[in-house]
Simulated scan of single mutants.
Amino acid sequence: MEYLYGIQIFLILMFFFFSYLILIRKNYRLISGFHSSSPEEQQQMIKTGYPQAVGKMMLHVGIVLTLGFLLQLFHIPYAMEGSYIVMLIVLLIESLLMTKKRKKKSQKINKTVLAVSFILVIVVFAIPFLPNTLEIHENSFEMTGLYGEEWAFSDVEEISLYDELPEIIIRTNGISMFGKHLGNYRMEELGAGKLFLRSDKAPYIVVHTQDNFVIINTDQPDKTMAYYQQLQQASQQNNID
């Protein structure tokens, strides 16, 4: 968790630092397209307030991320995720407003970039909501969907239900958003394994294999319990065979 905090603090400091360089130090060469413009075009952008608008946008983003980080420290649910959403909204709106302050031949390009960025934002935030489904095969079980994988029952050592999970140390290759954790993680006591967590509420199915572990739950406790019973029954049947 300290690793994630470090990344968040780095992003916050970066936005504040660049806003300082632009607004206070007036280092406009940091702004994309300013250095390549002619002196006349640069003066026109300064006159319309384009560099100042860029600096203020970075300042606003830094403030939004700082508030999200502080609320997260007080364990406010989804504080950081919410701040990222607000950050993206600020970036989109203020970038759109700034297109009017740029030279005309750049406005069409900027609007196209903004439209593509908006679509990408929607896609990124939709990814955690793509479903994962448990499928039981004759000699294995599989989690389909994003970060899906298949495990042989011959490799399963134990299937347990947890009311509380050890703390996540680091996400090595996955997605954590809106209380959902999907992909590869390292956890205290358990080591490295794979998570398919659709909710931060118990119960959690923990499957220990010979090499690692996989943890599964859904946003419906009854459905999670049904998954657990299916896994237990299929595992016991394979052991008998």
Results as ranks from 00 to 15, higher is better:
122 I>K: 04
78 Y>V: 05
124 V>D: 13
119 I>R: 02
69 F>M: 10
60 H>S: 05
67 L>W: 03
69 F>A: 06
94 E>I: 03
57 M>I: 02
76 I>F: 14
91 L>A: 03
57 M>F: 03
98 M>R: 11
119 I>P: 00
74 F>R: 14
86 V>N: 00
78 Y>H: 15
62 G>H: 00
69 F>E: 05
97 L>M: 11
57 M>K: 04
115 A>R: 08
105 K>C: 15
123 V>Q: 03
57 M>Y: 03
80 M>N: 03
107 Q>E: 12
56 K>P: 00
83 S>G: 04
83 S>A: 11
115 A>T: 15
56 K>N: 08
96 L>M: 10
63 I>T: 02
108 K>W: 11
103 K>R: 02
110 N>K: 05
77 P>I: 02
106 S>L: 11
97 L>T: 06
123 V>A: 05
110 N>L: 10
84 Y>D: 13
101 K>Q: 06
75 H>C: 14
104 K>G: 12
121 V>P: 00
73 L>C: 14
82 G>V: 01
66 T>F: 10
68 G>S: 03
100 K>V: 09
102 R>I: 09
72 Q>G: 13
102 R>L: 09
55 G>Y: 01
121 V>W: 00
117 S>Y: 07
110 N>G: 07
116 V>K: 05
75 H>A: 13
61 V>P: 00
93 I>W: 04
110 N>H: 06
121 V>H: 01
62 G>S: 03
125 F>S: 01
106 S>W: 08
66 T>E: 09
104 K>N: 12
117 S>A: 10
77 P>G: 07
58 M>I: 11
68 G>K: 00
83 S>E: 02
107 Q>A: 13
63 I>W: 08
67 L>V: 10
88 L>D: 09
93 I>T: 06
71 L>V: 02
59 L>D: 05
121 V>K: 00
88 L>G: 11
121 V>A: 01
114 L>V: 05
115 A>K: 12
75 H>W: 14
79 A>Q: 14
62 G>V: 03
62 G>M: 02
95 S>V: 02
105 K>G: 15
65 L>G: 01
